[in-house]
Amino acid sequence: MGGRPAAGPTRGGVRVRKGRVAALVAGLVLAAVLAWPIGLLIWANGKLEHVEALSGAPGTPGTTYLLAGSDARGEGISEDGTEGARTDTIMLLHAPPSGPAALISLPRDTYAEIPDNGPHKLNTAYSWGGAPLLVRTVEGLTGLTVDHYVEIGFGGVEGIVDAIGGVELCLDYDVNDPKSELVWTAGCHVADGHTALAFSRMRYSDPKGDIGRAERQRQVIGAISAKAADPGLLLQPGDQVSLLDAGIGSLTVDESTGIIDLGRLALAFRAANGPDGVTGTPPIGNPDYRPGNIGSTVQLDPELAPQFWSDVRDGNLSPGPVGGLPQP
């Protein structure tokens, strides 16, 4: 009596509650959107395998990545009978403070001074001393300090290509090469992982030998990068995990490199392969240089190479292809 009945919810109250619920849902969605890539990065970072590789030499301008493709044998991949671990793929990726990024393939048979061992083929440094000796050798050859070392097992290339559903590759002649297992009909074809790996390793049936192989290796990596950057991948979390698992599971990096550094590497790689980037080899003086009892090596042009590496470092090269076999 005299008391007032409890008031029911007003339309305004309903709107307030609905607004709070909408804000809560939006907040949860935002948290999920943010948490997924952050969690993915943390997971991926924990899967990286690290090795002591860097020399500790004073830094040079820009950021320099040494990329190596390693073959420890026993992976079911045929080749030319060489025993023990080695690297057939050696690339230097440099992002200067200004100017074009450059992706430079170093032929595995490049004649180089191996620290504490004397002159020999470049990939011998890896066979003799693994990543640390390869890093020191490349630094002595180029004058650039390696900031990040990234090594991928050859078997990993196969897994990555299969994880993204294959890549389109092009070669303008037929190949049937037993050593690399590449069978190819002239033209462009979508290659699965096994074929892409053979495509990047074949050299005995290539008229340009190691130089041609380096060109195809850059083509394979460029095709993988382009397809992995497909925005549609962002909407497929399962595919993201499969791709990262295939890629990171085959990577070995230096002691200070993390997943964020690999992201920066990917951006530099895309820049180098874009219209404003630089790709190719150092200037070559003699592709069949035979000093002493080392056998056939690739000699960089002793007059042009020093300035070439300075221009890479300082971003002074013009965009486009560089190097290659010397012109007759």
Rank of each mutant, 00 (worst) to 15 (best):
G3F: 15
P5G: 14
A6Y: 10
A6C: 11
G8P: 15
G8T: 13
R11D: 15
G12A: 15
K18T: 15
V21L: 15
A22F: 11
V25Y: 11
L28E: 08
V29Q: 08
A31I: 13
V33I: 10
L34R: 02
A35Y: 07
I38G: 01
I38Y: 09
G39V: 05
L40M: 03
L40N: 04
W43Q: 03
W43C: 02
K47T: 03
V51R: 00
V51W: 00
E52Q: 01
A53M: 01
A53H: 01
S55R: 01
G56F: 00
P61E: 01
T63F: 01
T64N: 06
D71Q: 07
G74C: 12
E75W: 11
E75K: 12
G76L: 13
I77S: 11
D80V: 15
G81W: 15
G84M: 13
R86T: 14
I90P: 08
L92C: 03
H94Q: 04
A95D: 07
P96W: 05
G99I: 12
P100V: 08
A101I: 09
A101C: 02
S105T: 02
A112N: 05
I114L: 11
P115G: 12
D116E: 11
P119Q: 09
K121P: 04
T124D: 10
A125R: 03
Y126H: 10
S127F: 05
P132W: 12
L134M: 11
V135D: 09
V138H: 12
L141S: 07
G143N: 14
L144C: 12
V150T: 12
E151K: 14
E151G: 09
G156V: 13
E158L: 14
D162I: 09
I164E: 12
G165S: 10
V167S: 06
L171Q: 10
D174T: 14
V175P: 11
N176G: 14
S180D: 13
S180G: 11
E181H: 12
L182V: 10
T185R: 15
G187K: 08
C188Q: 04
G193T: 09
A196C: 11
F199A: 03
M202C: 06
D206W: 05
G209N: 10
G209K: 05
G209I: 04
G212P: 01
A214E: 02
I221E: 01
G222H: 04
A226T: 02
A226S: 07
A228W: 00
A228V: 12
A228I: 07
D230N: 10
P231V: 10
L233G: 02
L235H: 09
P237L: 06
G238L: 10
Q240G: 03
Q240A: 05
V241N: 08
V241L: 13
A246E: 07
G249A: 10
G249S: 12
L251V: 12
T252K: 13
V253W: 09
D254K: 07
E255Q: 13
E255F: 02
T257W: 08
T257M: 08
G258R: 02
L262K: 05
G263A: 10
L265P: 05
L265I: 06
L265A: 04
F269G: 04
V278C: 05
T279H: 00
G280R: 00
P283E: 05
D288Q: 09
D288M: 01
R290P: 01
N293F: 08
S296P: 03
Q299S: 06
L304V: 05
Q307H: 08
S310G: 04
D314G: 03
N316W: 06
S318Y: 01
V322F: 00
P328L: 10
